[in-house]
Design a binder for these strands. Structure first.
Length: 890
RNA sequence: GGGGUUAUAGCUCAGUUGGUUAGAGUGUCUCGUUGACAUCGAGGAGGUCACAGAUUCGAGUUCUGUUAACCCCACCA
């Protein structure tokens, strides 16, 4: 195919739109993403963090999936039995809220429709928008095995969820309890602790006085939430608090409602805070709830599920909780109950979804007992069966699990996995079952009804790694791909998701769910703010892909930051990545344009290789080695940067330039073919190296470059292997001397403003004779790249030219007889500056080399290296000094 | 209250086990239409690596403390 594609037809500018869709279709149609279990190969598996079914691709997804795709494509090329299982999450609250929002537009609520009709609407919604994000992931280039796509509410997942629920219930790890939970009055459901976001807010501390029954004395209490006083069923003080010692056991009269409540002692109370006396509202505060249990206090619910006051609040009944607070404080003030008001900062919980203030309420909910599940999950990370990358997240994870509290899993929603519990209306028993019940297993009554609530979305997400591999069936996939290899996710869901998967995986999958947890940060806006809808500062990755291409976006996202750290989005960085793509495009174009008629079977002999050839092959193989090593360490950004540097700074800036001589010189076909061979060979290998990062561009070019014809696509071609025998130190040092010399000449010419067209003789004197043959053989490089008219190599010991610009690199002194252009004064000043720098370095190094401690304690290689450096500097210094003396004579 | 991250060029960031004259991208200045690329090339300017100690022959890199910014966790009303 390569020969037919004429280089001349290749567009001058990189245009991703012209090929990205084409290649994705090609890959998908040829089933390159699909994997069957192959036990003869090493498995490599990733399960996608399931995006919300009705969501759409945002920058965080783009980053997360780029990282996964790089790992997947890398391992696929390594020859592993590689699978990336995609799917999405039903996202209970989020999805239900969207559908309810749509209903509201029609003036309806979910209750108007009823449960069944409402769920039909949600499924319709899911069908309509459910595949959008999966198509967006395709535009990013994600090589998921789409044949294995799953959904957290599909049949298999639902079965897994029920199996796990019932099993945990049977083990006593799931229980139902009436206790204080976080209630969101706006979402109208209980939520778990981690769904509550605490924010410090400015509030007040109201001091109120409660009269002691039968006296004119008062006990002063302090509260941040006066409206809860209707539910006060006691006042607590610390048992050792001298101020209240004699009052413990007395009865107080609750103002406004005039209820008799006890004053009791409990060591929970902090005597230092407020007045040392706390009003106790068991139905509305977790601590008060506990105290209430200890002292057998009544629970009086004064705030309802909708955030308004109940009938217990008397005349305030039906009023919003905050309006009530305001009015009540006024009444307390007027009636002399309010003693004083203090400014007070305290943490207030908000719903992570809708941001309403959370109301701690007593209600009956289902909980998972965490302690027994958490322990093995801690162990698995402690003993290294699971490794976090970067490692520091281990601490976050363990610390959370060590202080974990029971997980409230029931939600008062309709969209989700309905809790498989049935209540008998006759005998009152609760039955939990794997199959739907129609009659009570205890009394046989058919008057039973299922629990109305659904499970927390994260309950099913927690089963993801094994449920989508077929559990509870014993599938070949489960056996081969579980535990999965790497989990890629953001640090923001370590608690929500990672920890739960580990616990569930160990309990039901019988092993850890994954070996590595590769954590990344957030993509922020250019000012470092979180991208959000409300701020309107989000950048749509789809827009970036349309404008600049998926490869560009991918490369931009994974370079320029360190694993686990947040990154900022800049359009300038996108452009920079695009420029890189364009650079590759054009370098390839240069090569392809010159390959017309190239005989693919041509293979150079060892003697055909020039210094430049050996050098680029050496650099290429070293790059393959280093990129591979970094990928294995999850240093994806570093790998990308290495390819960038190699391709741009070495391959393009130097090697391609150095081949032009041979390519444009038609006389020596063998030399030309050797250059073409090396060019295409290195390009082809580097494309494979780059493929996981920029899949589309590399495929587009690779198809045109000579390659292993047994591979239909670069994505299923083998990963490059470094040929260590081609990594040649001598080729690298020789070439470095040539490149340094060229740079120095350019430098000198720029110094005097020599016109580019005005060529000059270059005279070289060697302080390291071993470099003489290098320059003797490669003098044309200086002519091409340093505007040398003729290169003269001074015989050893001959006089140095006068009236010439001078520069010096390791082993070589360079003279440019740019007559008439030299400004003696300026030139002397410049050389003096160089000299000062050299002297400073020489002083530093000789100090070091005279230090006995350094000589005896530093490794010999380091000492030798420093000594060689010093010698180099001294040679340079001599040359510069000599040159300054020469100038003085002019 | 506990824990974590960050502090390196104007800006955004690399710098992996301590040892090159501390790097890149971007911006900025000078020059450049030579047959891959102006989405480019050549060259320049620009950093006491937050501060103070400690360890070491040697610290941007390790340790301690300080300061600043950010984040997470946390039931003192």
């Amino acid at each position: 195919m390569a020969e037919q594609e004429q280089g001349n037809n290749i567009p001058k500018v990189y245009d991703p739109q012209s090929f990205e869709k084409k290649w994705y279709k090609f890959w998908e149609e040829n089933k390159f993403f699909h994997t069957e279990v192959d036990k003869s190969k090493k498995p490599y598996s990733i399960v996608i963090p399931p995006p919300n079914v009705t969501g759409q691709l945002h920058m965080g997804h783009a980053l997360d999936n780029t990282l996964q795709d790089i790992l997947i494509r890398y391992h696929r090329m390594l020859g592993d039995n590689t699978v990336w299982v995609p799917g999405c999450d039903h996202a209970g609250i989020a999805t239900q809220a969207k559908v309810e929002g749509a209903l509201r537009e029609e003036g309806l609520s979910r209750y108007d429709l009823g449960r069944d009709k409402f769920l039909e609407r949600v499924w319709d919604w899911k069908e309509k928008y459910g595949s959008r994000i999966m198509y967006q992931l395709r535009t990013l280039g994600s090589s998921c095995d789409w044949d294995r796509q799953r959904f957290t509410m599909d049949e298999g997942c639902s079965r897994a969820v029920r199996e796990v629920f019932v099993s945990l219930y049977e083990k006593g790890l799931i229980y139902q309890g009436t206790r204080i939970t976080n209630w969101c009055p706006s979402c109208n459901t209980a939520i778990s602790d981690i769904e509550v976001e605490h924010e410090t807010e400015k509030g007040h501390l109201w001091h109120l006085r409660y009269r002691i029954e039968g006296t004119d004395q008062y006990v002063e209490i302090a509260t941040t939430r006066p409206e809860t006083m209707f539910g006060d069923t006691g006042v607590a003080v610390h048992p050792d608090d001298e101020r209240y010692k004699d009052l413990v056991g007395k009865t107080l009269i609750l103002p406004v409602v005039n209820r008799r409540i006890p004053l009791f002692a409990d060591s929970y109370v902090d005597p230092q805070f407020g007045t040392g006396a706390v009003k106790v509202t068991p139905a509305h505060d977790p601590n008060d709830f506990e105290m209430g249990l200890r002292h057998h206090l009544e629970q009086i619910k004064v705030i309802g599920n909708d955030g308004t006051m109940t009938k217990e609040a008397g005349k305030y009944a039906g009023m919003d909780r905050y309006e009530c607070r305001e009015k009540l404080v006024k009444e307390l003030e007027e009636t002399g109950v309010l003693v004083s008001v203090e400014e007070h900062e305290h943490a207030v919980g908000h719903c992570s979804r809708c941001h309403s203030t959370i109301e701690p309420l007593v209600s009956k909910q289902w909980f998972v007992k965490m302690e027994t599940l958490a322990k093995p999950a801690i162990e698995a990370v402690r003993d290294g069966r699971i490794q976090f990358v970067p490692e520091r997240f281990t601490k976050t994870y363990i610390n959370w699990l060590e202080n974990i509290r029971d997980w409230c899993i029931s939600r008062q929603l309709w969209w989700g996995h309905r809790i498989p519990a049935w209540y008998c209306d006759e005998c009152g028993e609760t039955s939990v079952s794997r199959t739907d019940l129609t009659k009570c297993p205890h009394c046989g009554s058919t008057h039973i009804h299922q629990d109305e609530d659904v499970l927390d979305t994260w309950f099913s997400s927690g089963l993801w790694p094994f449920e989508i591999l077929g559990w509870p069936e014993k599938t070949a996939e489960l056996e081969h791909f579980y535990p999965t290899s790497t989990l890629v996710t953001g640090y923001d869901i370590i608690f929500f998701w990672v920890a739960r998967m580990v616990m569930m995986g160990l309990e039901f999958g019988k092993d850890v769910p994954f070996r590595h947890v590769f954590i990344h940060g957030l993509v922020r806006d250019s000012q470092g703010r979180k991208m959000s809808k409300s701020l309107g500062n989000g950048i749509d990755p789809v827009e970036v892909i349309e404008k600049y291409g998926a490869d560009t976006l991918r490369f931009m996202l994974i370079t320029g930051n360190t694993p686990g750290n947040d990154m900022r989005f800049y359009w300038e960085r996108v452009e920079s990545a695009r420029n890189f793509a364009n650079k590759i495009w054009n370098a390839s174009r240069y090569i392809l344009m010159n390959m017309e008629g190239f005989d693919k079977s041509f293979k150079p002999d060892d003697a055909d290789y020039t210094l430049a050839d050996r050098w680029i092959l050496s650099r290429y193989n070293a790059t393959v080695r280093d990129v591979t090593a970094n990928l294995d360490k999850f240093e994806l950004g570093e790998s990308g940067r290495m390819i960038y540097d190699f391709l741009w700074s070495e391959f393009c800036d130097w090697y391609i330039e150095l081949t032009k001589e041979r390519l444009y010189n038609k006389e020596d076909a063998r030399a030309k073919n050797t250059a073409l061979y090396v060019l295409s060979h290195v390009l082809e290998g580097t494309l494979r190296l780059l493929h996981p990062f920029m899949p589309f561009l590399t495929e587009e070019i690779w198809q045109k470059v000579p390659h292993d014809e047994s591979c239909a696509s670069i994505m299923i071609s083998p990963w490059p292997v470094s040929d260590e025998s081609a990594v040649l130190a001598k080729a690298e040092t020789d070439m470095t001397a040539v490149m340094e010399t060229i740079k120095t000449i350019r430098n000198l010419r720029a110094e005097v403003g020599a016109a580019p067209g005005k060529k000059s003789e270059v005279i070289l004197n060697f302080t390291a004779e071993n470099l003489r043959p290098v320059f003797a053989a490669n003098g044309t490089y200086l002519e091409k790249l340093a505007s040398a008219s003729v290169v003269t190599l001074l015989p050893a010991g001959s006089a140095k030219p006068e009236n010439a610009m001078a520069g010096v690199v390791d082993g070589v002194e360079i003279y440019l007889p740019l007559k008439g252009l030299i400004d003696v004064e300026k030139e002397t000043a410049r050389l003096q500056k160089d000299l000062d720098k050299l002297e400073k370095e020489i002083k530093r190094l000789s100090g070091k080399l005279n230090n006995q401690g350094f000589l005896t304690k530093a490794p010999q290689a380091v000492v030798d290296g420093e000594r060689a450096k010093l010698e180099g500097y001294e040679a340079k210094k001599q040359a510069v000094e000599g040159r300054i003396a020469d100038l003085a004579k002019l």
